[in-house]
Amino acid sequence: MAAGGDHGSPDSYRSPLASRYASPEMCFVFSDRYKFRTWRQLWLWLAEAEQTLGLPITDEQIQEMKSNLENIDFKMAAEEEKRLRHDVMAHVHTFGHCCPKAAGIIHLGATSCYVGDNTDLIILRNALDLLLPKLARVISRLADFAKERASLPTLGFTHFQPAQLTTVGKRCCLWIQDLCMDLQNLKRVRDDLRFRGVKGTTGTQASFLQLFEGDDHKVEQLDKMVTEKAGFKRAFIITGQTYTRKVDIEVLSVLASLGASVHKICTDIRLLANLKEMEEPFEKQQIGSSAMPYKRNPMRSERCCSLARHLMTLVMDPLQTASVQWFERTLDDSANRRICLAEAFLTADTILNTLQNISEGLVVYPKVIERRIRQELPFMATENIIMAMVKAGGSRQDCHEKIRVLSQQAASVVKQEGGDNDLIERIQVDAYFSPIHSQLDHLLDPSSFTGRASQQVQRFLEEEVYPLLKPYESVMKVKAELCL
């Protein structure tokens, strides 16, 4: 049975990233139509530049190519590739079939990587351009969430054990800070992308030097003109047959890092959902379990974690691919890159769409948070109580021993009897502590235990987050809708 299948058929496997999760716009960027249309555009740009620099290419040939950029006979191309065992030459023939007058000058002087690699770089750039505003929107939604809850005390956790208090907004800023680093890295790697350009079979530009009869300047002009037509500021000066596969490492490393950030955020949300302090959106008709109707599973956060793990592992592909590119190139890269580049971007696209949807509907339960604080705060307040007693004339050592005994009794009630923490009640009825009984409410005010959390939130948002989001103001209103 021949390899390949009808990918629109229910009898043929289709990647869930495309069929179930990723956005239509990201799927289109990695589609065959987008790819092969870009090949034709690159052939047109090459012909236009070659004509401008004096090669015998007519206006009629150029116009014929322009008129057929979208006229792609995919069936013919597939048949040609089956016959020739070469995808680029299959599309040269297919393009030439609908451009008979231009057929002889299509791909003039070029090698397969002229269309293959340059198209990949265009796709990487455009895919990054799709991700950047999506990530900015996630940051914006979380920034709104953090600002609104900047002063809401909550129990902090280290080692997932109760620690000092923080605020809900401050905790959210930990998430935002990681995503801001990801946004900066995505922008950097996007701006650092260079075009492969017009380089020939081993990167020496020998074929173009021959076409222009040894004119170095025209060869350099050709490279520059096509690079500018493709919208790049610069091209690699040095290439082998391909652009260095280190570029793929750079791009997928940034995406993998984004995956790590999203995994951490969504894990926190899942843990908070278990504590009943916070939940992701839950639709009115949504079913959490087929057997347990009360369940409210954090399905979206779980999906993000599941896909983020996949995204983090994909960076190993370009690392290994770059390491086995012998001399000017081997074909070890080809099949692998067809999979890992598309999957990385479709996965990143999915987790950003999902995280935006989550961040637009996060639900906080202040009463649950308050109750958990009441359970733990008495123990945390013991040092403040000791200091207040010393100020009232008591002995630190005597007070410490009193607190120690009462704390152990209260802990026994919590752990052995399943009761509430009654340390404060014990202190309130103990005559030894009568000098500070009137101060206990103040000493137990949760806001006095959150330090500068709310001020940190305000400063972080104003100095770091809002300036970073400013270039994306025009796209901030787009909502994230999930079908599944």
Rank of each mutant, 00 (worst) to 15 (best):
D59S: 11
D268C: 09
V414W: 04
V247M: 14
S448I: 14
D87L: 06
M76E: 14
I238N: 06
N68Q: 15
P471T: 13
T330L: 02
A308P: 03
S12E: 15
V405E: 14
P281L: 08
Y466F: 13
K264E: 02
G4Y: 15
L165A: 00
C98E: 10
H86W: 00
V198T: 13
H400V: 06
I249P: 03
P435Y: 06
L341S: 13
L174T: 09
L484D: 04
A143F: 10
N353R: 14
E417C: 09
L152A: 05
E462R: 08
I139T: 10
W45I: 15
N357A: 08
K147W: 11
D268M: 05
I373Y: 04
S454I: 10
S448H: 14
L272P: 04
N357C: 11
R329Q: 00
D349K: 03
K35W: 01
M292F: 03
I139G: 07
G109F: 00
I237D: 04
M278S: 04
F208K: 04
G394E: 10
V92S: 08
G104F: 09
A453E: 03
L406D: 06
I237A: 07
L346C: 08
D445V: 10
M278H: 03
I403D: 02
Q325T: 08
A392C: 11
K224D: 14
L271K: 03
F30C: 12
L46Y: 05
D333P: 03
Q320V: 06
A103P: 08
T167V: 02
H97L: 13
C173K: 00
R309C: 14
R40K: 06
P467F: 07
H7P: 12
P293G: 08
R374A: 07
K35I: 10
A47Y: 00
P378N: 01
S447H: 14
H442T: 14
T52H: 13
V198F: 02
Q164E: 00
A308R: 01
L482Q: 13
A136L: 14
H86K: 00
A291G: 02
L331I: 09
D120A: 06
L271E: 01
A381C: 06
V168F: 05
L440Y: 02
L152G: 03
K295D: 00
D333Q: 03
G104W: 10
H217R: 12
S334A: 06
G231S: 09
E280A: 03
Q325N: 14
F449P: 03
H437L: 06
N297K: 00
E464S: 07
T382I: 09
R404A: 09
Q397M: 09
C266D: 05
G116I: 05
S140F: 15
I386E: 04
T111N: 04
S395A: 09
D398T: 12
S12V: 11
H107G: 00
S140L: 14
L443C: 06
H442Q: 14
E417H: 09
L183Y: 08
V138P: 04
I62W: 05
R396K: 07
R338E: 03
Q397G: 11
E283V: 10
G418Q: 02
S448M: 14
Q397E: 06
V138F: 13
S23K: 11
G240P: 06
R149K: 12
Q320I: 12
V457Y: 04
F379D: 03
G8M: 15
L443E: 04
S359G: 12
I265M: 15
W39T: 10
I427K: 04
S290V: 02
R452W: 05
C99Q: 03
M387F: 09
L17W: 14
L423Y: 07
M89C: 14
T204R: 00
G214K: 09
A260S: 11
L482E: 12
P471V: 15
E481D: 14
C27G: 11
L44E: 07
C266G: 09
T350P: 06
M316R: 04
A322C: 13
T204Y: 03
E401D: 10
K66P: 06
Q416G: 11
T38V: 12
A146H: 03
V465A: 09
L152V: 08
C266F: 10
C99T: 12
E280I: 00
S306Q: 03
V115E: 06
C98F: 12
L142Q: 04
Q397Y: 03
R459K: 11
T201W: 02
E481F: 07
